[in-house]
Amino acid sequence: MSFNIVVLAKQVPDTRNVGKDAMKADGTVNRGALPAIYNPEDLNALEQALRIKDKFPGTKVQVLTMGPARAAEIIRESLYRGADGGFLLSGREFAGSDTLATSYALACAIRKMGKIDMIICGRQAIDGDTAQVGPQVAEKLGLPQVTYAEEILKIEDGKITVKRRLERGVETVRCPFPMLLTVNASAANCRPRNAKLTLKYKRANTATERNSLEEDCGDFYKTHPHLNITEWGTADIDHEPEWLGLSGSPTKVKSIQNVVFTAKESKTLDASDNTIEELMKELIANHTIG
């Protein structure tokens, strides 16, 4: 038994580390100052795929990401950790996509990848925390889904048994292939980069990246096809143009408002013993505490 697995992974700004230096004077985030990272739960998703590959030799793990040229970094990172290959879906037609247009584009690309047994996503991307793209892709491809996966318990008889982590408990479900899985952060962490694979794939890149290099690669990528990261644009997928990008996005941003918190009449206190004691006394006296 072996499987064809696609992992959906997204490059996101590191919203967990919006430190003071990333804030501009007007209170907005300087996105340029934020590192672009592998969406954390997509690494949990990749690990689940690699574990299936460990168990079922011959399994093929491919990573699909939609984003700008630099998102090829996601594919390389995946190769370093054990993925077999990857696709970057890129082009200005995809710009301005909401989750629905994103899932449409990803679904079109997955159809192009041939027979797929399993699609594994992260639960949610940290730039929006929406958790919509996985289920939307499943619906577009007519697949059953298992969301919030924490552990794959068993794969047999063409079915996968999964432990799900819910808000208030756990659930074990069994689902036939082909199917889509979304993986929680509470699942196993992703294995680190493998030194051998990192050396092997260091020069893996897309045609776009190659063209911007100073050096002339000559025939190198022709003789090393495994180092070629496939780049797909709209011409490579069967699609309806109006379903992509802005026109394919039913949600529109009407307005963005800067919120200025109306400052309360607040008291600023120092941390001295005396001040803290007075504060505690006051809170006890007015029955806020105690």
Partner: peptide, 23 residues
């Protein structure tokens, strides 16, 4: 925006091509 709503909402919006705003 619960585990159920976040499992169900996106599928329904995808089938009907209607926008869905989370949280």
């Amino acid at each position: 925006a619960t585990t159920i709503g976040r499992d169900l909402g996106p599928r329904v919006s995808s089938a009907l091509f209607s926008g869905l705003t989370a949280d």
